[in-house]
Design a protein around this nucleic acid. Sequence first.
DNA 1: ACTAGCATGTAACCAGTTACATGATTAA
DNA 2: TTAATCATGTAACTGGTTACATGCTAGT
Lengths: 237, 237
Amino acid sequence: MSRRSGILEFAVLGLLREAPMHGYELRKRLNTSLGIFRAFSYGTLYPCLKTLVANGWLIEEPGNAPEDALAASLAGRRAKIVYRLTAEGKEHFEELLSHTGPDSWEDEHFAARFAFFGQTEREVRMRVLEGRRSRLEERLEKMRASLARTRERLDDYTLELQRHGMESVEREVRWLNELIESERAGRDQRSSSESTAQQDNTPGATGGLPRHKGAESSGGTPPDDSTPPDPSDDPAK
Amino acid sequence: MSRRSGILEFAVLGLLREAPMHGYELRKRLNTSLGIFRAFSYGTLYPCLKTLVANGWLIEEPGNAPEDALAASLAGRRAKIVYRLTAEGKEHFEELLSHTGPDSWEDEHFAARFAFFGQTEREVRMRVLEGRRSRLEERLEKMRASLARTRERLDDYTLELQRHGMESVEREVRWLNELIESERAGRDQRSSSESTAQQDNTPGATGGLPRHKGAESSGGTPPDDSTPPDPSDDPAK
DNA sequence: ACTAGCATGTAACCAGTTACATGATTAA
DNA sequence: TTAATCATGTAACTGGTTACATGCTAGT
């Protein structure tokens, strides 16, 4: 289960970059807003936050609500802890953002990267999208090969399963094509207006994504599992 | 990572039901023919085979190739071990085949179930397909809800990710609809001819799947990860 | 003779979950 | 006052991988 925690680190840094938050909220955002990755438990999240603090990338602050600050000053009160990104943390995150190793094209990793495309340079976005695409194309190649090899030995259902799997991958490739296409178009179109973006906390202009009709569906890789009914989340029983 | 080993057990039993095999081959089939689940390492497979043997569901036999049998009879020769399903093993597998708990609609579990639909009773197939569908519909509901809640706070890329994710799920629902549809059609059409099936080792008639043009793509849930470059598979380095 | 792939195994390790402990706050 | 949800933590466990050890067999 290689380096899934790396994804957590990345996502935490990314979310905190937008605004300071406490652990609990962080976790919610991790499942919902970026509902991509299958949820991490608190048993993973809190220790992770600890190490990020130890690295100097975050600092713990008492909750900012006035009553909290007050209450926290009193005897052994357990206060909410708000995590804020430090300058080094921000720097580190930017560093991570600009990296584009083969890892970045792997399913969950890719989803995490994509989720922060809003703060990613256009050329990095391109590299990630293209990397992902060729990763999927390799995959397709393997699938096709293995299918060709075994086709006749397989029963209809197995075949159908295979078919549907390949189709899913092909579909993601088409999606990536569209995205790459519109990234390219974006570069041509608005090569000048670049500096006008960057308002709010969303650096790196969003430059026209392919327009889809309604506000319907979609997400990188279909979640491994919809929010596994995490017991820490659901203290019932 | 609940009960992934249960999937292994199930798949091993299912594969051995078709024909006896040794561990190495078993693993290959697990990744390729049923390329659905992300591969298990030998470190998982062999111990699993051991427990299946201990349960009396499998027996170990010396490789059936004549030279093997000969060689094995000689001093401390390490022979290939071929695993064969016992009567109890077969019974147990049939038992598993007929179970349809909520587990069966989970991603990897479902894929495993589907891969053995060829040996599954039609009504069980229906239950599994329908269960899976409603599982996905729940998922969609949650996604839609969370999207509605957070829509305005999200940037274009996050939104696009969400959209694509939902679309993937919707697509799988449509796929299930087709399958359910054709299962139903199959029942009506050929309600009499049932007994003619059951030749070979493939019980439970295959009754017309939806016909797809070429021999293109497809598979349950897009694999978590294409065969992680398992070092035990690839002793290079 | 050598490499690559076939084949079986295991012990050490590790990431991440489970289950638990604790307590505050808010709504019924 | 109770239940639910917010909120933070940790120790124990465990599923599964990694890395290693061993040796056969076929092709070059």
